[in-house]
Amino acid sequence: MNKSSVQKLLDTLNIPEKESDDLLSISKTVELGGEETYISEGQVPRKFAIVLNGLFRYYYIDEKGNQFTKGFILPGNVLSSYSAMRNRTPSFFYIQALENSEILEVTYRKWLQLQNNSPYWDKFLIFALERGYYIKEKRERELLLLDAEARYRTFLSEFPDLEKRVTQQMIASYLGIKPESLSRIRKKMSG
């Protein structure tokens, strides 16, 4: 991705020109292949990124090896195991590219310097954290109060093209159901 494409994305995030230039001066673009891990469980993350293009997921693995998809991350969103990075503790989950992707990566150390130099970045951080909190709160409500079919309909509404880009296993784990249950729901909805 060229600099003007990166700048366009930063413009869509409403980052002012000076701050955008400052961010670009401390970041680098990184390409990841499909299925490549960005952050692993147990790793103390020292970086975060903005997704420029592609697709990522956050997921957990239990002691039996079962994977549980926590979320899907699309372009324009921040990619981070934030609390682990902030507290310098191991991440509880994995971050994986699901297809060839490109990110704008910043080390946490450089981010803190940037944040200290401009009050804008405090506002940016609050916005990103509020957005993440909203998504987390909405997802918890859906998992607790909606049945599997309603959760699947919500998934299709929020991620209209994602079903073609990820496996049925990933979708089922995101919905909190087994792949067989997802097959039954799909069959019922198409019939």
Rank of each mutant, 00 (worst) to 15 (best):
S157M: 01
L145T: 12
S173M: 04
E102Q: 14
S190Y: 05
L52Q: 10
F127E: 06
L23E: 02
E158M: 03
N66D: 15
R153D: 09
E31T: 11
T89C: 07
Q67S: 15
S91P: 11
Q113E: 14
E142G: 02
L24H: 05
S83A: 10
L9Q: 04
Y59G: 00
L143Q: 06
K28S: 13
Y174H: 12
N100V: 02
S83G: 02
E41V: 07
T37M: 07
K178F: 06
I103W: 03
K138R: 15
Y58N: 12
L129Y: 10
T107P: 01
G132C: 05
K187F: 08
M85A: 14
E137S: 15
T69L: 11
R57A: 09
T89V: 14
L23H: 01
N87F: 09
E41D: 05
P75W: 07
R57F: 05
E19K: 09
D21L: 08
R131F: 05
E17Y: 04
S83D: 10
S101E: 03
R109Y: 13
A97G: 12
Y94V: 02
V166P: 11
S190E: 13
F93L: 06
F93T: 00
N2V: 04
S183R: 11
E149R: 14
Y133R: 06
T167P: 10
F56C: 13
E130W: 01
P160L: 09
I95S: 04
S101V: 04
L114M: 12
L74K: 14
Q168N: 13
G76D: 07
V30Y: 05
I50S: 05
S40W: 08
Q43H: 13
D161Y: 13
L23R: 02
L156A: 03
Y120S: 05
S40D: 09
K47Y: 06
R153S: 12
K138C: 03
F48P: 00
L32M: 10
E105S: 13
P45I: 05
S157E: 08
V51E: 07
V106K: 00
K8E: 14
E36P: 11
I103Q: 03
L129E: 04
K138V: 12
I95E: 10
I73M: 14
F155I: 06
V78N: 01
D122Q: 11
P119Q: 14
